[in-house]
């Protein structure tokens, strides 16, 4: 009996992981509309120039990486507002440790990953052990990290060696390294969610903490794990940004609005803010939609502030398309 249900579950999980999330329809529509407008009103680069297409993905790399982590946290019915400043502290600390020397790269990466783990751990502990609402907990840690950064650094600090620019600008054949890393992170996120016990438990915790706890899941550990993973994606995203920029500065995270944008792209991708539902492939589509908007607005030469209006509308419409049929009222 039990074996049947578990195989059943496995099958369902497999089906869920293979099925293409509905957001991809959105993605295709946005892409086609953008491309057609470009074709009519501008020089039609979006459809004809593969480099521009690739650059849509490259533009999305920093946001995409951190959005994968955000997806996991949100699936666990938590949230992480501290990613923007985690990105900043990564960018600045890695650049500071590297000091332009290739031999320091490894130390720097290990160092910032350790910082990331520490931030994720603190976030997770505050949320699970102190029972602080995750929104407030991570808003608080975000303010604390911000204060620490601004008190210690006000400017570009250190520099990254030329060799490290490979991460940001390098190519493997025709494919930029950054895209490979993005896909790798998405794959890891997918693997964790649908191929491991951790993932199954995370869905359980996000769906209903009490039920999960009663069925023997160590809910706190699972959620702390998700927070650590999220902070580590923020660190990788920060490393990518600093590799593009030659030196780390305290404003890279907040300037990119990575906190709210990662949440927005996650929910566009079909992950429910209330937890327990969603996946990383949807998030990837959400991120790409933002990237396409960037490129389309550049191509059309339209004031980019209108883009922000579109982003707002798309967020609401996308989520409405998931929620409108649900019988449950939203909070």
């Amino acid at each position: 009996m039990t074996t049947i249900t578990t195989t059943d579950n496995k099958l369902k999980r497999l089906a869920r992981s293979v099925r293409i999330p509905p957001v991809y329809i959105f993605l295709v529509v946005v892409f086609l509309v953008g491309g057609i407008l470009d074709q009519i009103l501008s020089d039609g680069q979006i459809f004809t120039n593969p480099l521009i297409l690739l650059n849509i993905i490259v533009r999305s790399v920093a946001l995409g990486i951190v959005a994968v982590g955000q997806t996991l946290v949100i699936i666990g019915a938590s949230i992480d507002l501290s990613v923007a400043y985690t990105i900043s502290i990564t960018a600045i600390m890695s650049s500071y440790i590297m000091q332009g020397k290739t031999e320091n790269v490894l130390t720097a990466i290990v160092g910032v990953l350790a910082i990331g783990i520490a931030i994720g751990l603190v976030n997770g502990l505050i949320v699970t052990k102190l029972k602080v609402n995750p929104f407030i907990a991570t808003l608080g840690t975000s303010l604390i990290i911000k204060g620490i950064i601004n008190a210690s650094f006000s400017n570009y600090t250190g520099s990254v060696p030329k060799s490290f620019e490979f991460f940001g600008y390098g190519m493997v054949g025709p494919i930029p390294v950054s895209i490979i890393i993005l896909l790798l992170i998405v794959f890891i996120g997918w693997f964790l969610l649908s191929r491991t016990q951790f993932g199954a438990h995370l869905y359980g915790v996000g769906g209903n903490v009490e039920v999960a706890r009663l069925s023997g899941v160590r809910t706190d550990r699972v959620l702390i794990g998700a927070h650590i993973f999220c902070s580590m994606t923020a660190v990788i995203s920060g490393l990518f940004l600093v590799s593009q920029m030659r030196a780390g500065a305290p404003w890279v995270g907040p300037n990119g609005i990575f906190d709210l944008n990662s949440i927005a792209t996650t929910v566009i991708g079909g992950t429910a803010l209330s937890g327990g539902k969603g996946g990383v492939w949807g998030t990837l589509a959400g991120v790409l939609i933002f990237g396409i908007l960037d490129t389309t607005f550049n191509q059309l030469g339209v004031n980019p502030y209108l883009k922000s209006v579109f982003q707002g509308v798309i967020i609401v419409l996308a989520v409405a398309s998931y929620t409108i049929r649900s019988k449950k009222d939203a909070a």
């Binding site: 927005a264 982003q311 989520v319």
Partner: peptide, 11 residues
């Protein structure tokens, strides 16, 4: 539309 207010107001 039953969109959570967090998302509605973010948009």
């Amino acid at each position: 539309l039953k969109v959570p207010s967090f998302i509605t107001t973010l948009g």
